[in-house]
Amino acid sequence: MGGNRTKVNIGKAAIFDLDGTLLDSMGVWKEIDQRFFARRHIPMPDDYASAVASMQTGAIARYTIDRFHLDERSEDLIEEWNQDALLLYATAVQPKPHALDYLRALRASGAALAVATSLPPRLRQAALKHAGMVDCFDQVCSVDDAESIGKEEPEIYLLASRMLGVAPDHCTVFEDLLVAVDSAKRAGMKVWAMYDQSSAKDWDSIRSKADGAITDFAQAPAIL
């Protein structure tokens, strides 16, 4: 894999975000957002992506309708986004550097692995398949499964730990968003932050809250 790993015990389980953490998907969502606003002849605000980054899809649809005074239904917006996203996740999204190697190394070490994502099932399955990660995880869950408003709250991480059968204090979470890092810490878990351009403005705060920070999975903690 390359790089010198920090000698840190990740515990018995690792829980991974997808967008911006395992997957370099910033360009995918930028393209989806650009298509959406272009169809409506609305200039795309610079702060839109960061404003919705931690929300689940239903909340994003309601926020978008309210903010831009759209006479549309939430379910229609969601279906439009899903159709664009399904094509791009199945054909274009790529893993972050050395992500697949790291997942395989963790599995070989005996660690339990889970995904905790805001992506709906068909998008995450398409993404995992295209990225070659389908067989890497013991469990996959979403904010919808946790009946959570999003990653502003720790429920999704606690659900993932229950699904894995591993106590929160033996779990390490990998995330790229500030609110997600904070929530995972409140769940009682260790957190390693992955740099993503979409949250670059928060990087200093993210690093100060996380137990460690990386820009490449070659820098991720060693398996002990």
Results as ranks from 00 to 15, higher is better:
residue 41 H to A: 14
residue 63 Y to V: 06
residue 21 T to W: 06
residue 55 M to E: 05
residue 37 F to K: 01
residue 17 D to P: 04
residue 41 H to E: 14
residue 58 G to M: 01
residue 18 L to S: 06
residue 52 V to R: 02
residue 57 T to E: 15
residue 63 Y to I: 05
residue 74 S to L: 00
residue 37 F to T: 01
residue 18 L to R: 04
residue 28 V to I: 15
residue 71 D to F: 06
residue 18 L to Y: 06
residue 76 D to P: 01
residue 40 R to F: 00
residue 46 D to V: 09
residue 50 S to T: 08
residue 31 E to L: 06
residue 43 P to K: 02
residue 31 E to Q: 12
residue 29 W to C: 05
residue 22 L to A: 02
residue 75 E to I: 15
residue 52 V to Q: 03
residue 46 D to F: 05
residue 48 Y to Q: 07
residue 22 L to E: 03
residue 61 A to S: 13
residue 18 L to H: 06
residue 43 P to S: 04
residue 26 M to Q: 13
residue 34 Q to D: 15
residue 35 R to T: 12
residue 38 A to G: 02
residue 41 H to G: 06
residue 56 Q to I: 06
residue 44 M to H: 09
residue 25 S to R: 03
residue 67 R to T: 14
residue 31 E to N: 08
residue 46 D to L: 09
residue 65 I to L: 11
residue 70 L to T: 01
residue 46 D to S: 10
residue 71 D to K: 11
residue 51 A to R: 10
residue 72 E to Y: 04
residue 19 D to V: 08
residue 24 D to T: 05
residue 29 W to G: 01
residue 26 M to D: 13
residue 33 D to I: 09
residue 31 E to H: 08
residue 23 L to T: 02
residue 59 A to N: 13
residue 67 R to V: 10
residue 31 E to K: 11
residue 63 Y to Q: 10
residue 54 S to M: 01
residue 50 S to V: 10
residue 51 A to F: 04
residue 44 M to I: 14
residue 40 R to N: 03
residue 49 A to S: 15
residue 24 D to R: 08
residue 39 R to F: 00
residue 59 A to Y: 09
residue 38 A to P: 03
residue 74 S to W: 01
residue 42 I to Y: 02
residue 57 T to K: 13
residue 63 Y to L: 13
residue 21 T to F: 06
